[in-house]
C-alpha cells in the first residue's frame, strides 16, 4: 500500500460469517474533515463494515490503513489510535448514570485534567444530558440515549467518529436534531465522520461523499449531491420514480 493522505483507507476488504460472505472487495477512503456516508438496504453489510473497522469482527482479506498505519486488530487499540464507533442500537450502559456513561467513554484518555471541560462541551452540544446527569442511562428516551451514545463516543476525543444508523428507531423531529448536530460536529469542530444509514436521503443530504453498498459490494460512489440526483439511487434507495 502506498502512503496516502487519507485518514482512513480501506482496500479490497472481504469479511465472512462462517462460510457466508458479508463484504466482498470493499474499498473506500475517508479524508480528514469529511463526512462520508455509506448507504444500503437492510442486510447490505453496513454494520459489518463498521464492526470490522472497530476490530470487533475480524477480516480475511484486504487492508485497513488509518493515518498511514495498519489499523490494530484489538478493539480497544482501535479506540486508542483514534477511531470510536457509536454502535447500532446505541448500546448505552443502562444501569450506569449519564455521567458514568460519559466517563466510560473517556476510559482511554490520558489527559484526565481536561475531562470535566470535555464533559461540559458535550453538555453544550446536548443540554438535555446535563439535566439528566445523575439519571440512569436506561431511563432516558430513545433520542436522549442516542445523544448519550454520541456524547460518550466524543469523550474519547476521536479523530474519526463512526456512526451506525444514528436515525434508527427515532422520531423524525429527533432525527433532524441529531443530524444537525452531526453537521455541526463536522463544520464547527472539524471532526471527521463516517456514517452508515438506511435512511439514504438524510445521509446523502448531509455528507460530502457517499458509497452505495449492495449485498456486500460497493456498487456506486460519488458526492452526496450527485447520488441524490442519480436515477438509480433515486429509484432504489429514495423511493422516487
Amino acid at each position: 500500500m502506498p502512503a496516502t493522505s487519507a485518514l482512513l483507507e480501506i482496500h479490497d476488504l472481504s469479511v465472512y460469517y462462517g462460510g457466508i460472505r458479508a463484504l466482498h472487495g470493499v474499498s473506500l477512503r475517508v479524508e480528514r474533515g469529511e463526512i462520508v456516508a455509506v448507504i444500503g438496504a437492510n442486510g447490505a453489510g453496513k454494520s459489518t463494515l463498521m464492526k470490522t473497522i472497530a476490530a470487533v469482527k475480524s477480516y480475511q482479506n484486504g487492508t485497513i490503513f488509518f493515518e498511514g498505519q495498519p489499523l490494530p486488530k484489538d478493539t480497544h487499540k482501535v479506540v486508542t489510535s483514534g477511531i470510536t464507533l457509536v454502535p447500532e442500537g446505541r448500546r448505552i450502559f443502562a444501569p450506569l448514570s449519564v455521567r458514568e456513561n460519559l466517563l466510560v467513554g473517556a476510559y482511554t484518555r490520558s489527559n484526565r485534567q481536561d475531562l470535566e471541560k470535555n464533559m461540559e462541551e458535550v453538555f453544550q452540544l446536548f443540554p438535555r444530558l446535563k439535566e439528566r446527569i445523575h439519571q440512569r442511562g436506561g431511563t432516558l428516551s430513545g433520542g436522549e440515549q442516542q445523544m448519550l451514545a454520541v456524547g460518550r463516543a466524543l469523550m474519547s476525543q476521536p479523530k474519526l467518529l463512526m456512526l451506525d444508523e444514528p436515525s434508527l428507531g427515532l422520531a423524525p423531529i429527533v432525527i433532524d436534531a441529531m443530524f444537525e448536530t452531526i453537521v455541526r460536529l463536522n463544520r464547527d469542530l472539524g471532526l471527521t465522520i463516517l456514517l452508515v444509514e438506511q435512511n439514504a436521503s438524510l445521509a446523502l443530504e448531509l455528507c460530502h461523499r457517499a458509497y452505495v453498498l449492495k449485498t456486500g459490494e460497493i456498487v456506486m460512489e460519488g458526492t452526496g449531491k450527485d447520488l441524490l440526483e442519480d436515477p438509480r439511487v433515486r429509484a432504489s434507495y429514495l423511493g422516487i420514480k
Binding site: A54, V56, T75, H76, V79, T80, T84, L85, P87, R91, F93, A94, P95, L96, E100, L103, V104, G105, Y107, T108, R152, S156
Partner: peptide, 18 residues
C-alpha cells in the same frame, strides 16, 4: 468503572477502549 461497564456489556465496553 471499566469492570462495571464490562459486567453490563463487555463488547460495548471494548468499543469504549476497555
Amino acid at each position: 468503572l471499566g469492570i462495571r461497564a464490562s459486567a453490563i456489556d463487555i463488547q460495548t465496553a471494548a468499543l469504549m477502549g476497555i
